[in-house]
């Protein structure tokens, strides 16, 4: 008989050690590039630290400054929430509609799927340049087409009121037909046809079938995408940074731009870390809320 200890047989121990070795790259990476920085950024958030100097302990003063003194803090958070909610709701809705369209049986739908998907492959800088030109107030195609049907188009990215809707428009164009739509499509294809047929015989109309079968069955997929969408869009940065630089007159100065400029233009590493931690807590809270709420209305087939 083999010798066993509380750690199992020699063979089991050997397997465990090998297993740890195989996953060790990730563990090291996690400690160095994720956990370490999270802890370090919490420490830095409690200090005044201008790059090149030494961190000076100031307790919660950075947080206090963000909440009470910094005039850009709350507006940037508000703008980010506005962008997030609008772009996620519209984006999920439009992706779902596009997926439903592609879920119908008609010839050439793979070609359409490819066409819908292409915008999501556009590199973000190219996206900003391309749309900057389309939305150009005087010479842009969009305002030209609007003028053709008798509408005077707004200044889009250079208009204070229209700047955020413009960023939403660009991000919708780039995301509606992308991964989210493909996931919805896979979800829809997983809905058994018999369910639709059975309920049709029971006299359910198209809308009822959509509401009680399709939506009910793919609700976990929808939830997952709403969650991911909100977390993703709360970090909106690149598009606004390239297309507007936060302007005009701070109209697109999102939370991440605030963090970026504080860290890498003003080199206020302590204050930027406090902003990063506030952001981290917001994301945690959002994930937690989503998971809690989802238990009420999400249908899980195997639970």
């Amino acid at each position: 008989m083999r010798k066993t200890s509380r750690f199992g047989t020699r063979q089991q121990r050997r397997e465990a050690i090998e297993g740890y070795l195989w996953v060790s790259p990730w563990v090291i990476g996690f400690l160095v590039f994720s956990l370490g920085p999270i802890i370090a950024s919490f420490y830095l958030s409690l200090t005044k630290y201008k790059i090149g100097g030494t961190p000076e302990w100031i307790g919660l003063a950075n947080y206090k400054e963000a909440f009470t003194v910094d005039k850009l803090f709350w507006p940037s958070l508000g703008r980010t929430a506005y962008f997030s909610v609008a772009s996620v709701i519209l984006g999920v809705l439009l992706s779902l509609l596009a997926a439903m369209l592609l879920n119908q049986e008609f010839k050439g739908r793979n070609i359409f799927r490819a066409l819908f998907y292409l915008p999501s492959l556009t590199p973000i800088v190219a996206l900003a340049i391309l749309w900057g030109w389309l939305l150009q107030p005087k010479l842009g195609l969009i305002n030209y087409l609007l003028a053709e049907i008798g509408i005077q188009g707004p200044g889009w990215l250079v208009d204070r009121v229209w700047a955020i809707p413009s960023i939403i428009l660009i991000s919708l164009w780039a995301s509606v037909g992308g991964g989210r739509m493909i996931i919805f499509l896979a979800g829809l294809q997983g809905v058994p046809k018999e369910l639709h047929e059975a309920s049709e015989i029971d006299g359910a109309n198209a809308f009822q079938r959509f509401r009680h079968i399709t939506i009910a069955l793919i609700s976990p997929v929808i939830l997952f995408n709403v969650l991911l969408g909100i977390i993703g869009s709360f970090g909106v940065f690149s598009l606004a940074y390239i297309a507007t630089g936060g302007g005009p007159n701070y109209a697109t100065w999102f939370f991440m731009l605030h963090l970026y400029y504080n860290a890498f233009s003003y080199f206020q590493m302590g204050y930027a870390s406090a902003l990063a931690w506030i952001f981290f807590l917001i994301i945690c809270l959002l994930s937690f809320l989503q998971i809690k709420l989802s238990k009420r209305w999400v249908y899980y087939e195997f639970s």
Binding site: S34, I231, G235, A263, F264, M269, F279, F280
Partner: peptide, 13 residues
């Protein structure tokens, strides 16, 4: 789920 923004400052340092 961890956003890059949370770790960017210490990573840069």
């Amino acid at each position: 789920m961890l956003p890059w923004q949370v770790t960017i400052v210490p990573t840069f340092l």
